[in-house]
Design a protein around this nucleic acid. Structure first.
Lengths: 251, 251
DNA sequence: GTGACTTTGTGCCCGGGTTCACAAATGACT
DNA sequence: AGTCATTTGTGAACCCGGGCACAAAGTCAC
């Protein structure tokens, strides 16, 4: 089994996702969509959802132009049109996009109509917060399993879910149809947990522990490094201070 | 005051950070470092820290080659060398980098020797977890203030810090020298909180709420959308299934 | 039906990041 | 002292995503 090193969600790295076009008939035409585009597509869908809910923000005939939608999302209209063109989605020229049809297209392309059960490993502060995070079930990601190694936590309910022993991961994950695993453990345990999740059949992992994870090639890993985000902000802070100092030194 | 729309941490967007080179003398030579490089520099520093702690992984004379360090962090050696070259850091050819000197250079360039007090707004599950997250103080980001609007939470201690009324943000942030604000509120309140933080003098914001934030141009915003990460993993899952189906259909 | 206007879809260029490959420099060994 | 192996630093090519601008296409008015 060949293994690769997960590179995490470092920005700027090439990442393309081949996928089937959203054609009604199974035409088998695979397309390749940039990951950045996929990220924006979810934003478009979110905004359209809100429009459909509120009912406002779109015209009486239910259409919306790329300029209007782009303004709502806060991005370039051309970028939006190009993003949408990846789906082969056809708006009507001179009019715009049918909001309902576009919403349906996006939902299908992003798999937003399905639910993807999630397991969280590590029921510490962060794991508990993730288990209770309302944004997950709201977007189709119900947390169906919690795992830990602490005997004091195993068996107790957290956010309505009973914590299971990590050793039962394979069993529980299969029972709950877990598709995505979230690692919220301290760093030293992360690799072991990843191995366990992979062995349990989970092929998509979201990790919060810094450091690299080694997984089989067919397992997708994304990393969120919270401290790194602060570090990047701090670097901006330094830059700002230095620029200010430089300006002051040489007026 | 001109305002811009924060684009969040969407990958692939142009982002450069001018900064001062790590020269000992204040030579005033500003360099521009890609954000992706800054992110990796922190990784190098972390690995070097661990090496210094464990003592292993590097040669007896305290040097380490770019190939060795690159293997440790799991990236391309050439990329590592180019990243390091942004700092004007000089290793010795034929030998490698002096680990201690490199560590010191990275620490200074990244401001890792300083501490940046953080305020967390929104003391829900996520905010509480962030307040107790050990990775923050460990990397120089102590959480010094917590804010909320809920009278039941204000005045109570969470993770050792007394929750303050968001209306006292300006006062508390100044008292605690808060440099970075973290928004962990529900989405509808995010923009209001951002405005409050900006008014309180905070110019670096990390937001966990989806949706755009409008802030003055001199305020740096990064966004972490946890549900989006799962969505991207789910998209991979779809792709995988589609590819499998396509393979099966056309052997 | 025809013309004018609106909006989509996309070819093209550009800027930035990654990678390769090689010259320069340094230390070791004879 | 000279030669060679090793490793850094970097110029240049490549690749990818973003933005512009325009042709195609469709609608509305008359």
């Amino acid at each position: 089994m060949s293994t690769i090193v997960a590179d995490g969600a470092t920005p700027g790295e090439p990442a393309r996702l081949p996928t089937i076009g959203a054609a009604p008939e199974p035409g088998l035409r695979l397309r390749t969509i940039p990951e950045a585009t996929v990220a924006r597509l979810t934003t478009y869908l979110r905004v359209l959802d809100r429009c459909a809910l509120v009912g406002a923000e779109l015209r009486v005939d239910g259409t919306i132009s790329s300029d209007e939608l782009a303004a709502l999302v806060g991005i370039n209209p051309a970028k939006l049109r190009k993003d949408l063109s990846y789906l082969g989605s056809h708006g009507t020229r001179g009019v715009g996009y049918d909001a309902a049809a576009l919403r349906s297209t996006l939902q299908q392309a992003l798999g937003a109509h399905e639910t993807y059960p999630v397991a969280v490993v590590g029921v510490g502060h962060l794991g508990s917060a993730l288990a209770a995070y309302p944004g997950f079930p709201a977007r189709g990601f119900p947390v169906r399993a919690l795992f830990d190694t602490d005997p004091l936590k195993i068996g107790r309910p957290v956010a309505g879910i009973t914590v299971s022993d990590i050793r039962e991961a394979a069993l529980v994950c299969r029972r709950e149809d877990v598709v995505i695993g979230v690692i919220a453990t301290p760093e030293p345990a992360a690799q072991r947990v990843a191995d366990v999740l992979v062995a349990a059949g989970v092929r998509s992992i979201l990790g919060f522990a810094p450091g690299q994870l080694t997984v089989p090639a067919d397992v997708e890993v994304r990393r969120v490094d919270l401290a790194l985000e602060l570090q990047l902000l701090a670097f901006h802070e330094i830059r700002r201070g230095d620029v200010a100092a430089a300006r002051q030194a040489v007026p």
